[in-house]
Simulated assay, not measured.
Amino acid sequence: MTDDLKLPRRLLIGTALAAPATIARPARADGEVIVRTPGGAYDDVMRRHVYDPFTRETGIRVTVVAATAAKLIAMFRANNVELDLIDTGDAQLMTLEGMGALAPIAYDRWRWSKPEDVTSEVKLPYRVGNFTYATVLAYNRESFPGDNHPKSWADFWDAGRFPGPRMLADIASASVNLEFALLADGVPKDQLYPIDLDRALRSMSRIRPQIRRFWDTGALSAQMLSDREVVLGSIWNGRLQTLIDRNAPLAYTWNEHMIQVQALGIFKDARNVEGAQRLADFMMQPQVQAGYAKALIYGPTNERAFDLLTPDERARMPGGENSRRSGFYQNIVWWHENRERVTRAWSRWVLR
């Protein structure tokens, strides 16, 4: 995610949180791990379910810091790495990996978690997903009562059958909803990548008259639905579920949702690489993941964690077996390789 993840966060998949020019802290040894996080309520959840239990188990103190992707890159380029473990969207970690900034994840030395229990799509040499979230199709139940609501992105694009103001994501949110535009245009889920950018933008042009605004943060998308500025839109599932739990007349379909990943990476030049490796291992335990997944309303990546959740809890989370059948993983390799091209094309298109 890119903004303050659900929750009270999205965190999430490119964070725009401000960071100080330098991270003020006393000199430390192996008894402290500095973690980059999205900040806000996310830190409270992780403190309760991960950091404090880790400190009790190991004696290693965990200090959290909010830092933008630009700050992380600047640290590495200046040879002044002030962080150990990076908890961020996997797209940001892919950028750092491409620069040679990350250490391999020490799966062979895990002692709390079992690498074979981690979903294969998120278990990679230099990063490991610690939860999944999803972008879903949300709708207002008062505008679309009963079963008369959009059930696919083709329905979302059908303003005749399902009238009303809509929203979709802007490039500033991390990525625009090109995949949904192609699904609406008849492209099967398993043929979305490589994205046909021209076709996707032509599809976007057909729905653009109905788009009230392209949202750039999770907070804005939630506000627009909550205030009924729009009655349909793409939104991160955690942001939406928070509104639903507060009795907002909103709902969503899991059909054709896009699964996205929050992941862990370790700076290779970190002062406490070993402590960061241990914290990553600790965080990936099924019982630990089950705890923070319930609080964040996002999906665990340790398959064993789903066994510790109730059916109702599993139904609210992406990344499980049913989720993988009805949705698809965003291809961040394609986005990493094409982001600049998409940004240029989007900037031209949105100003037309």
Rank of each mutant, 00 (worst) to 15 (best):
E337M: 10
P209H: 05
G31K: 15
A27L: 14
D196Y: 08
L102N: 07
F162A: 08
V176R: 00
R278T: 06
T63Q: 13
A19N: 09
A91R: 04
L137H: 02
A169Q: 05
I259S: 06
R9D: 13
P209D: 00
Y133M: 07
P286R: 03
A91Y: 12
I195Q: 03
F144W: 05
T88P: 06
I297Y: 07
G320Y: 04
A172K: 14
D43K: 07
L243C: 07
H336S: 15
V176C: 06
D196N: 14
T253D: 01
R202C: 08
L296F: 08
A251P: 01
G238E: 14
Q277I: 00
E303Q: 13
D30W: 00
W215M: 08
P38D: 05
P53Y: 04
E303G: 08
P318W: 02
V342Y: 11
M46Q: 05
L7Q: 09
F306L: 10
M283R: 11
E313N: 07
G320H: 04
R28G: 09
F131D: 06
K123Y: 01
T242L: 10
R339Q: 11
V350G: 02
S323D: 09
Q285P: 04
I13V: 15
M258G: 08
A134R: 00
A293W: 00
Y107S: 04
G59A: 07
E179K: 01
R77W: 07
R25Y: 05
A154L: 02
D198S: 13
N331V: 07
R324Y: 03
G275V: 06
V136Y: 01
A101P: 12
I259G: 02
I211A: 02
R206I: 05
R111E: 11
A21R: 11
N140G: 00
R111L: 10
L96Q: 01
A21F: 14
L197K: 10
R208T: 08
P286A: 15
R25K: 14
G40D: 11
T135E: 11
M167T: 14
E142A: 12
T135Q: 03
S152W: 01
V136L: 11
V187H: 05
A174E: 08
P8R: 15
L83P: 00
A29E: 10
V261D: 06
S143F: 11
I259M: 09
I297V: 13
Q277W: 02
E340V: 14
N331D: 15
